[in-house]
Design a protein around this nucleic acid. Structure first.
Length: 528
RNA sequence: GUCCUCGUAGCUCAGCUGGAUAGAGCAUCGGAUUCCUAAUCCGAAGGUCUCAGGUUCGAAUCCUGUCGGGGACACCA
């Protein structure tokens, strides 16, 4: 819709101009302040320029009215144009708001260490990533959703050790010397219990079983993580193992050396990241020859770029902020364009319950499990609440609020609008396809505004995706639902002389709500 | 200390590539149901957009600074 408008305006207006929403829909559907900037060039008043411009649009069919007001140029779309768009959408719902974008994107998100279940902070990145994925695909991008499994390094051994000690504590009489660092939390004891059933309690007598428990525990945790994700309607295309990637370390290291990216000092190997915008150089191989975590990420990003995507998006926790510069530096040293790598930070989530704050900690046992929250409020409410806020701002919400089934819970508000529409059709004894050929003409202002709003989904989706601000979609759906509720309260539909028109209008609203919800991983309700 | 972020209604937040009278939800108060679901709607009240400068036709929006909250500054992942 916006595209048609832009094309038409371009016929009469040269150069760049901003197309925006008028303050008030009664002014028109679209507006441009172009006359203000032209005023400078032509040394004429913006009012006069706007009026001259308005006249040029008199013969355009998609507009019924183009007028100048206080220097703004306001465009009002014709009923026939809006009707055509609505008819297309209702007849071919699957294609509604689909875009024609092209290009491949590798989207990496969650990538939580397989050392424990997902917590509420992971859930935010997961929901954001999954929704970005769904919307991007709808717009036409070829996107791959990838999970980077950190299955190498200390933390996996720590997992094995933690299980081992928990088993020793629970199933043997041996004394347990708890080290400074280990994984706490009930799930470790659950794992020890399962391990006992599977391997026998005697494994807890032998420290040699720690390695085995590490590998086994990691697999268990990955299964659990996959399950946590699936419970929130989140799936991935690919899982990439850090451990497996280390086979390519020599090869990647040689490439860095060939590109003069590293040097040796104090027995360690350093990446010259400060040459590429990082604060300082970073160690990538320790004195004892073990590569650091950064080395793993360098291999991974080299491998990612070898796969040849057009664009790369990583969704990281906000605590990884300082990590961006060094990874980008590495990418550049590897001979790739670091601008193709985009990092989206997902900020902390503060969870409240009954107004009391929860404190989260990843290592300690008192973090809030994603699965607990999903169980408590449902996957859909969780997804929705995470999507109502920008990913890079702190989010605070109270689980008690999400448990209520009234207007303080925004998802019910939208669902209710959708269910209402279905109810109206039931009362009328018709279905959308029976009324789709009715022409939407001579609508009153309320109906026209509602129709226009329902047709905005394509541009909202594009805006939300390109700006990575998915709250634009939730905001839009909330306001569309509000418009429908208002309309419903004000205008009777069933049994009126405008019944067919208003049913078609309702059907259009339902298509938009349903499509928008679907892209957020939420199924529209037909009855409540 | 350096860097990054945020600061808008009582609360949680939109708005920020400069543009028309700064918005929503919640909470508060008042009202609407013989009529398609009142899980809704209508109305009222609520603001020095942290503060101070600057840029210009125009600043919540951009710049500088200030104060306040949060975060990052590993050979841990």
């Amino acid at each position: 819709m916006k595209k048609s408008v832009l094309n038409t305006i371009q016929k009469h207006l040269e150069g760049d101009f901003a197309l925006e929403k008028p303050k008030d829909l009664s002014f028109g559907h679209y507006a441009t302040p172009a006359a203000f900037s032209l005023a400078k060039v032509h040394r004429k008043s913006p009012m006069i320029i706007a009026e001259e411009l308005a006249e040029k649009f008199e013969d355009e069919e998609i507009f019924t009215k183009v007028d100048a007001l206080k220097g703004y140029l306001n465009f009002k779309l014709s009923d026939a144009f809006l009707d055509t768009k609505a008819t297309e959408a209702i007849l071919n719902e699957e294609a509604f708001a689909k875009g024609e974008k092209s290009g491949t994107i590798l989207l990496e998100y969650v990538s939580a260490n397989p050392t424990g279940p997902l917590h509420i902070g992971h859930a935010r990145g997961a929901v954001f990533g999954d929704t970005l994925y769904k919307i991007g695909k709808h717009l036409g991008y070829d996107i791959t959703a990838e999970y980077y499994v950190n299955d190498a390094g200390n933390q996996i051994r720590l997992l094995g050790l933690s299980i081992f000690l928990a088993g020793r504590d629970k199933f043997t009489d041996l004394e347990v010397n708890w080290p400074e660092e280990f994984y706490r939390g009930e799930y470790i004891y659950d794992l020890a219990e399962t391990a006992k059933e599977k391997f026998g309690a005697e494994i807890f007598n032998d420290e040699n079983s720690i390695d085995m428990l590490s590998d086994w525990g990691k697999e268990q945790m990955l299964d659990l993580i996959r399950q946590n994700l699936a419970d929130a309607n989140i799936t991935f295309d690919t899982f990439v193992s850090e451990k497996a990637l280390f086979e390519k370390w020599e090869e990647t290291f040689d490439k860095l050396k060939a590109n003069d990216a590293v040097y040796e000092k104090d027995g360690k190997v350093w990446l010259k990241s400060s040459e590429k915008g990082d604060e300082k150089d970073r160690v990538i191989v320790r004195e004892d020859g073990r590569p650091t975590y950064l080395a793993g990420d360098i291999i991974y990003h080299n491998e990612k770029f070898e796969r040849g995507y057009n664009h790369y998006i990583n969704i990281w926790g906000a605590d990884h902020h300082g990590y961006i510069a060094r990874v980008k530096a590495a990418v550049e040293f590897l001979g790739y364009n670091p601008e193709k790598l985009e990092v989206i930070l997902s900020q902390m989530v503060a969870l409240l319950k009954g107004g009391e704050p929860y404190k989260m900690s990843k290592r300690a046992g008192n973090f809030i499990l994603m699965s607990d929250v999903v169980e408590e409020v449902g996957a859909e409410a969780l997804r929705f609440i995470f999507l109502t806020k920008k990913s890079d701002t702190h989010l605070e919400f109270d689980v008690d609020m999400l448990k209520t089934e009234d207007s303080s819970n925004p998802i019910y508000y939208i669902q209710y609008a959708h269910a209402r529409i279905n109810q109206v059709f039931e009362k009328a004894g018709k279905n959308p396809h029976e009324v789709v050929q009715t022409k939407l003409e001579d609508l009153d202002e309320d109906a026209q505004n509602l129709l226009f709003s329902a047709l905005l989904l394509p541009e909202v989706l594009e805006d939300a995706f390109e700006s990575r601000q998915l709250q634009k979609l939730t905001d839009y759906l909330k306001s569309l639902a509000a418009l429908y509720h208002q309309f419903y309260n004000k205008h009777k539909i069933v049994g009126t002389k405008n019944e067919e028109k208003l049913l078609k209008l309702s059907a259009m609203v339902a298509v938009t709500l349903r499509t928008g919800l679907k892209l957020m991983g939420i199924e529209a309700k037909y009855k409540m």
